[in-house]
């Protein structure tokens, strides 16, 4: 990587305001994630963790502020970004095989119309091997367990060969052994100099999994190296109730801005 790209963070967010159905979900979020880090996004339910990821991906529109990916618009570097959505976001009855789904990861590199060739298939197979699903490549996706489905998504993201990964609760519905395997895999990706931002709901394990933590509750409560951020004062702030006046007033503002 050039020195220039090292100067600008992989993901930069400035004064982001997002509201959903007239209620604020994120209010004034500032963030700069350096390249090559593995960030756990932690916070209580409804703190806006998934919304943050979706806003970065442009799936949710924001009322105020901006998001920069690799120092530019998301549009310009969208192919460098891998997104692992929540498992419920797709229809698992869809008539495609595991291989088909993983191959989708390669579509960004091959152009319009062009079909995935031998090289793509090999790449997809390698990704499947990495997540330990090579034996399932011909299965229809509804015949997989929850954890396996999650790993299919992961394999698809691997096949994408992105530089920045945004993962929305990749451990939801995954058994403990798989979880460890996935964390291991994520560590390997990080070691290749790639950036991972992972929404995680379990405070207990977050500490060992991630080297940076983002404490989120409608706003950034704390962001930094795991051992710096993980103190009782900040955790208390994150989980100890919400700022009622702020959320009420922010709701008023959102209403006016439609």
């Amino acid at each position: 990587m050039s020195t220039e790209s090292q100067k600008c963070p992989a993901l930069e967010i400035h004064d982001l305001i997002v509201s959903y159905q007239k209620k604020p979900v994120l209010y004034g979020v500032d963030l700069a994630v350096p390249e090559g880090s593995m960030v756990g996004v932690v916070g209580p339910n409804g703190a806006g963790k998934s919304t943050l990821i979706k806003t970065v991906m442009g799936l949710v529109s924001h009322a105020h502020g901006w998001v920069k990916v690799f120092g530019g618009e998301l549009r310009d570097s969208i192919k460098r970004v891998g997104y692992v959505p929540q498992r419920e976001s797709v229809d698992w009855d869809f008539p495609v095989s595991v291989m088909d789904v993983v191959l989708m990861g390669c579509y960004g590199r091959s152009g319009l119309i062009k079909r995935p060739g031998k090289m793509e298939k090999e790449k997809a197979m390698q990704a499947l091997v990495k997540v330990g699903l090579e034996a399932y490549s011909k299965r229809q996706i509804s015949n997989l367990s929850g954890g396996q489905q999650q790993r299919v998504f992961l394999a698809r993201a691997l096949a994408q060969e992105s530089d920045l990964y945004l993962m929305d609760e990749p451990f939801a519905g995954v058994d403990a052994a798989t979880e460890v395997a996935i964390v291991d895999l994520l560590g390997q990706i990080r070691d290749q100099g790639k950036t991972l931002i992972v929404v995680h709901h379990d405070l207990a394990t977050a500490r060992e999994y991630f080297d940076m933590i983002l404490l989120l509750n409608m706003r950034v409560v704390g962001f930094g190296k795991t051992n710096e951020v993980f103190n009782s004062e900040l955790l208390q702030k994150t989980y100890g109730g919400r700022l009622t006046v702020l959320s009420e007033i922010a709701g008023e503002v959102a209403k006016q801005e439609r």
């Binding site: 004034g28 700022l243 006046v245 702020l246």
Partner: peptide, 13 residues
Amino acid sequence: LYLTNEADYAADH
């Protein structure tokens, strides 16, 4: 004042 003191906002925001 509220934003600065209670919601940990940067003063320039």
